[in-house]
Design a protein around this nucleic acid. Sequence first.
RNA 1: GGAGGGGUGGCUGAGUGGUUGAAAGCACCGGUCUUGAAAACCGGCGGAACGCAAGUUCCCGUGAGUUCGAAUCUCACCCCCUCCGCCA
Length: 426
Amino acid sequence: MLDIKLIRDNPDAVRKRLADRGRGDEAVLNEITVRDQERRALIVEADKLKARRNAVSKEIGALKAKGVDVSERMAEMKEVGNVIAAGDQRMAHVDERLRVILLTIPNLPHPSVPTGKDAADNPEIRRWGQKPEFAFKPKPHWEIGEALDILDFPRATKISGSGFILYKGAGARLERGLINFLLDLHTREHGYTEIFPPFLINRASMIGTGQLPKFEEDMYRLRDDELYLAPTAEVPVSNIHRDEILRHDQLPIYYCAYTPCFRREAGAAGKETRGMIRVHQFDKVEMVKFSHPDSSYDELEKMLANAEKVLQLLGLHYRVILLCTGDMGFASAKTYDIEVWAPGQNAYLEVSSCSNCEDFQSRRANIRFKDKDGKNRFVHLLNGSGTALARLFVALLETYQQPDGSLLLPEILAPYLSGVRAIHRK
RNA sequence: GGAGGGGUGGCUGAGUGGUUGAAAGCACCGGUCUUGAAAACCGGCGGAACGCAAGUUCCCGUGAGUUCGAAUCUCACCCCCUCCGCCA
């Protein structure tokens, strides 16, 4: 949520930066300005009346105690009460409208974010490693996985429908091992505290991080309860400190968490549907930081490095790109994506997205800290994948496939696979 | 799911219709004292909105209602605790 004061004081700058995102969000700014003025006028009016009612009511109490007849004043105050009630009702209307508009406006891009229309305008920041060379034509992961009997797409579809994955045998073992590998790395080497959060999330939390009210149709929701399936661990973990005031010496707070991620992918049908690139349920280890505003961009670079470390340790070639204004997510002020190379598809796949949301989410979720000067300020919230599992799984299969159809995985994973690096067809 | 009890400031906890935004204690901050610390004593100490300011208003789980006036009364919902039932 943007600060209404920022919109009030710098409407043109806000308009410009929203327009850079290219979704037409700047169109509602006029209404915000009008409603804001209306709201403030109503407050002034109501406060005057309430002050009078409070004073006279106090007087009535005192006079009544002395036995004086106060029926005239009481009748007068009843009328004032009616006027106040009518004003409060209008106020509630304006407030609600203003709130809904503010909740559906995206964050402003940081000045360092390049203006652009879509993914084609995202600058590449760096590459690491090289595309592996093969003496044969590398296969896509769905062929490798089915040949090794570690992935079963038809049966996943039978159980749940398209867009679900069934891992089997060494495949299930690899997925579980990867989760442990990622959590161990971030907790032991990068200073994150491990969290295992609930996977069902209430509405207030979903609003807090920005999934609701705007993206309701992208979320899975339970039929009988006001609960949603977590689309990412960012949601439960960021909400850990909702409605809290932290001490400045607690910051920064680093959390990481494994959760499955559930996404309806409404409107994405037919897009990259082959294999396990875009699915309704995938595993992910997420990093979340609560940061002091002064250091949040340093923290973003560190978080990005933490995610890159995963791919470096696994020996997977990747590139880092900076999302332009038109390609950024709703809550983010600046986002880096990491894309891993998938030789079987001759394509880079997004496995991590590291964002600084600044105070956009903490304003919604009311997450503050008491600064050294005693003032309460909103924390800056960052989140980053460290990393998504399904596509990482894909990159491992396609990168480490052998001429005989087997897999030879990186040495570093051996402890997580009972000491075994190779996966053969049984 | 059933029965009962309860949700008040960072914490504990008074308060059952009228100077109560809220006693008291703890915690915290500043000061006196002290070589320093502790103790003692003095003072300060919730959040939000509007306003240039003075200040005004709102907030006692949430939302409606009764009343001139609600933390206090009524209704609904949410959450917590205890017991019972069920259960991994």
